[in-house]
Design a binder for these strands. Structure first.
Length: 940
RNA sequence: GCGGGUGUGGUGAAAUUGGUAGACACGCCAGACUUAGGAUCUGGUGCUUCGGCGUGGGGGUUCGAGUCCCUCCACCCGCACCA
């Protein structure tokens, strides 16, 4: 009987649906296991063969864990807010919800035909109001929380209000900007305010003033901030959405702009986000990328008093504060450099220098972020101003230059040309002094960044190695009141507002200009007449009138929407309790399912998604809504599947195509040819002529055997290269089981690899062969199999189990092929005791066929719930071992010996063997090394 | 520049703690059955001057190295004036 994969797959998919075979519920009797895929954005193009790779691996693992007795949660959903649907809406006027729905349906069809074991009853869509009402709720909680830097956790804002009314801000340490009070609009805080206020101050404030003050401490807060504005997209972007000064999506230019935006105080979590990385089972590269993104560095802040014209401290008390990781090089400071945007530039600049400084600032402002990043040439101007060195009292000239970034540290540096390469280049370029501070190092030739160098010309630190002077230097600045030990971070608070339509609306209204949380309703998207920003640059939602809003409270609604990462930061929690309309996820359920045990997805989300969901998870944990503070315990990043393009070679100016091997004899033009017209690099000539009218009368110069061989190359899959392979075609031709096995067989999951359809027939053949084992000519089913058959099966059990445990998905297929080949070669009837375990081993990879074979071998119930077989040691141990015997490391002959022999006995047998004497050719044996069960090496 | 990774047959790749390098599969070659199907089955297939040589190059440790150490090279990914 043939392997009729179409009938088999259709039958079992229907049965599974009928029996709700993949539905899971909490079950305290069984251990849980949570396997999660990064959910897709449902794009209009549908899936190509690269997309399901990770899904297949996670599906295999989920099924394996189910066989192992775990209660497995394995859900799927859609990250369905996003730009493409919105841009399609802008072009066509069609509501993005319609586009999104269509795309989801297509995805769902494609996913279903692959036979994944998703519990579809748990599907989530981030753009569904029943989902995003809880995204809004989490935002609301973030809005109503502050971060206690002493307790290192988020707390309700009401507790901060209580603290203020009891003691002002004296015994409370909320995370906030260093000079959070700057920019407050009300009179309590004058020019000399230092950030402290009393309970009386607080009590004297009115509601609006209190709200304005509290806004400085909320975890989700409104602030004027310099943002990445993308004029082409009409929206702001987060730092990780900007690559090389261009938008990640669309590649449009991005400029800096100050706007009032919702922000997320992720910086409060910087240390925890960094520290808990150590316990995650993620790749080093992802963890390193996160560490770098957070960018913690240790050092000191040092303040330099601004000098007046006479070289005395300026009466205003103004100071330039810098952050440095090398306070030990303080004696080497030759000049200061401020970012052009630094607030003190204006007052430091002398009249004589003003024209140059203004010109430089203007030029820097004109440059886009991209230009500024790309331009590594040295530029800068002297301001004319000076500051006073806190250690030596010397006057230090102040420059501005755009290699100093306004957004990092304090936007100002102390330049130590002897110890820093950029400072050194700057000094050389402008012919500034390079004070020598390292013993025996000529810093006129290059900067010295070696921390083991010995200091000189450094007062009381002379003779110390730089590393050792570090802590002395920090102590010194601290005791002299001109600085402090400091940790600095690269990570910024995240901008959370987007000027888009197709995103979560904020649950925020304004009353008298004061933002307030809406808790009594879900704020759904209003209808608008166009999906573009308004004429005066307001977000698309501002087009909606009061009546257009399904929910409208207060004087005005917030018209920004949330960024793409909002919904994806917590979706793994919603799967646990997807239909709850009382809370985002019942605590009992999240306690049961807990962390995602295995997360599978591409590595392209290393900074954005992973960082943000870790942040939200920690927050929800702080507030007691869930019981764990890291979302993804272990993670596998699958590699990209590349396309294999085929080419034909047209002789210039003709319609004649020459086969690959002879193309060098002609002047040819290489053209992509649709891979569907090519098999094993041989072109289907008729198909090619029919492909396009221009090729209808094409001539060919062929190989000797009359075939046309195409050229090939591995490239990214894309429509324009005609190398896109959709799963649909392959499922149609070979079946889902074959495709699943083949994608796993292709190579290590984490590696990038070219897609090559040639190999799929081998895997398909394997499934046919295994099918034949169960439906052979004399298909009567004995209870017992032969000893030999059981040895083969148990060897496979051991290998497959071991490989799955270490996520070696590709070698499992090989192991099964070996077992099937060996069993086929036995040419004997197999019994249930061999066929049933074999069906279970197959089931994670080829679930449809496994069900069929399970039934054929009279297995009880569904194979899905069959217990994973255990490899019995008695079948694994051999009683004879064939030892390769090597002489000086070169294998010369084989020697079969009883497995029970000791090492000494093995050695004796080797010494006695006549072939040994022949190999020695008279030489003496110096040593014999016996590795029991493996090899014998004779050293002569 | 910094961080992470990868280099093994014609191709995708195996080799988990150092122990017969190339399993499994594709492709290719030969044969069988067929009579022109890209079907099926069987056998062969790293290179070789048949001594050997072979895991990017060079060196080292070891009885023994794809695997460990040092060094160099190539390619891929991420970050990038981060003080």
């Amino acid at each position: 009987m043939d392997y009729d994969f179409r009938a088999i797959e259709a039958t079992w998919q229907r049965k599974w649906k009928e029996t709700e075979a993949y539905k899971v519920t909490e079950d305290s009797e069984r251990p849980k296991f949570y396997v999660l895929d990064m959910f897709p954005y449902p794009s209009g193009a549908g899936l190509h063969v690269g997309h399901p790779l990770g899904y297949i691996a996670s599906d295999v693992f989920a099924r394996y864990k189910r066989h192992k007795g775990y209660n497995v949660l394995h859900p799927m959903g859609y990250d369905s807010f996003g730009l493409p649907a919105e841009q399609y809406a802008i072009q066509t006027g069609q509501h993005p919800a319609i586009t999104t729905e269509e795309n989801i349906n297509r995805y769902r069809d494609q996913l279903e035909q692959l036979g994944f074991c998703y519990d579809w009853s748990r599907e989530v869509r981030t753009s569904d109001p029943s989902y995003y009402r809880w995204t809004q709720w989490i935002f609301g909680e973030l809005f109503e929380s502050w971060y206690d830097t002493q307790a290192q956790r988020a707390r309700p804002i009401s507790e901060l209000e209580s603290a203020f009314s009891e003691n002002g801000n004296f015994n409370v340490h909320p995370a906030c900007h260093e000079q959070w009070w700057q920019g407050l609009s009300f009179p309590h805080f004058g020019a000399h305010f230092d950030g402290s206020f009393t309970a009386t101050d607080w009590d004297s404030m009115n509601m609006a003033e209190r709200q304005e003050l509290l806004m400085c401490f909320r975890i989700a807060y409104l602030a004027d901030s310099e943002v990445n504005w993308c004029p082409a997209l009409g929206t702001v972007l987060a730092n990780d959405e900007v690559k090389d000064g261009l938008s990640e999506r669309g590649g449009h230019p991005v400029v800096k702009k100050t706007m009032r935006q919702w922000m997320m105080r992720i910086t409060a979590y910087a240390d925890r986000l960094l520290n808990s990385l150590d316990h995650l089972e993620w790749t080093d590269s992802v963890k390193e990328a996160q560490r770098h993104w957070i960018g913690r560095s240790e050092g000191a802040s040092v303040r330099f008093a601004v000098a007046n014209r006479d070289g005395q401290p300026d009466p205003s008390g103004a100071e330039v504060e810098v952050f440095t990781t090398r306070p030990d090089t303080l004696h080497g400071v030759a000049f200061m450099v401020l970012a052009p945007e630094h607030t003190l530039v204006e007052s430091l600049t002398t009249e004589a220098c003003r024209a140059d400084v203004d010109a430089y600032i203007e030029a820097a402002g004109m440059k886009s972020e991209r230009d500024r990043q790309g331009d590594k040439s040295i530029s800068g101007v002297f301001t004319g101003g000076q500051v006073i060195h806190p250690l030596t009292g010397a006057l230090v000239p102040v420059w501005i230059a755009d290699y100093v970034l306004a957004g990092y540290g304090t936007g100002a540096i102390m330049a130590v040309p002897a110890g820093d390469e950029r400072d050194w280049r700057f000094a050389k370029h402008f012919d500034l002094p390079i004070p020598a501070i390292f013993e025996g190092v000529d810093t006129n030739e290059a900067a010295c960044t070696d921390k083991n160098a010995t200091l000189c010309n450094s007062g009381e630190w002379n003779g110390l190695r730089a590393v050792d002077a570090l802590s002395r230097a920090i102590e010194w600045v601290e005791t002299h009141g001109c600085g402090a030990r400091k940790r600095n971070y690269r990570i910024r608070d995240a901008v959370f507002s987007r000027q888009r339509y197709w995103g979560e609306p904020f649950p925020i209204m304004y009353e008298g200009g004061i933002p307030k949380r809406i808790t009594d309703a879900t704020v759904t998207l209003p209808q608008v007449d166009a999906y573009l920003p308004t004429e005066d640059g307001e977000p698309p939602l501002a087009r909606a009138s009061r009546e257009d809003w399904p929910v409208f409270r207060g004087d005005a609604m917030e018209t920004n929407t949330m960024p793409g990462w909002a919904g994806s930061s917590w979706y793994f929690l919603r799967y646990m309790d997807p239909h709850n309309n009382v809370t985002f996820c019942d605590r009992e359920k999240s306690d049961y399912w807990g962390q995602v045990d295995l997360y599978v997805g591409g590595a392209e989300h290393t900074t954005g998604h992973l960082l943000y969901s870790r942040f939200w998870t920690k927050f929800l944990c702080d507030r007691g809504y869930i019981g764990f503070d890291e979302p993804f315990k272990s993670m596998i990043n699958q590699g990209m599947i590349l396309g294999r393009s085929n080419f034909v070679y047209r002789i210039q100016g003709t319609n004649t195509f020459v086969t690959a091997s002879q193309r060098k004899d002609h002047h040819t033009q290489r053209l992509h040819v649709d891979i569907n017209l090519v098999e094993n690099d041989k072109l289907d000539l008729e198909g090619f002529r029919a492909w396009r009218t221009e090729f209808a009368d094409a001539d060919f110069i062929l190989e000797d055997d009359g075939t046309y061989i195409c050229g090939h190359e591995v490239e990214k899959m894309s429509k324009s290269k005609y190398n896109v392979q959709t799963p649909d075609d392959l499922v149609e031709r070979y079946g889902a089981d074959t495709l699943r096995c083949y994608e796993m067989f292709l190579g290590p999951l984490t590696q990038h690899k070219p897609w090559d359809t040639q190999g799929i027939s081998g895997v398909h053949n394997f499934l046919r062969k295994i099918h034949r084992l169960y439906t052979g000519d004399n298909a009567d089913l004995p209870e017992k199999s032969s000893e030999e058959a059981l040895r083969i099966v148990h060897k496979a059990i051991a290998k497959v189990t071991d490989d799955l445990d270490r996520h070696a998905f590709n070698t499992v297929v090989s192991a099964l092929m070996i077992a099937v080949n060996d069993l086929g070669a036995l040419n004997t009837n197999l019994g249930r005791d061999a066929l049933q375990p074999l069906a279970v081993l197959l089931s994670p990879y080829a679930p449809h066929l496994a069900e069929e074979l399970w039934a054929a071998s009279k297995g009880p119930g569904s194979v899905l719930d069959a217990t994973w077989p255990e490899a019995l040691q008695s079948y694994l141990t051999e009683d004879q071992i064939t030892y390769p015997v090597s002489f000086n490391g070169k294998v010369r002959f084989q020697l079969a010996l009883s497995a029970s022999l000791s090492a000494q006995e093995v050695e004796a047998s080797v010494r006695q063997d006549e072939r040994t004497a022949a190999q020695l050719a008279g030489k003496d044996i110096r040593k014999v090394i016996v590795v029991p069960g493996r090899i014998v090496n004779v050293v002569a």
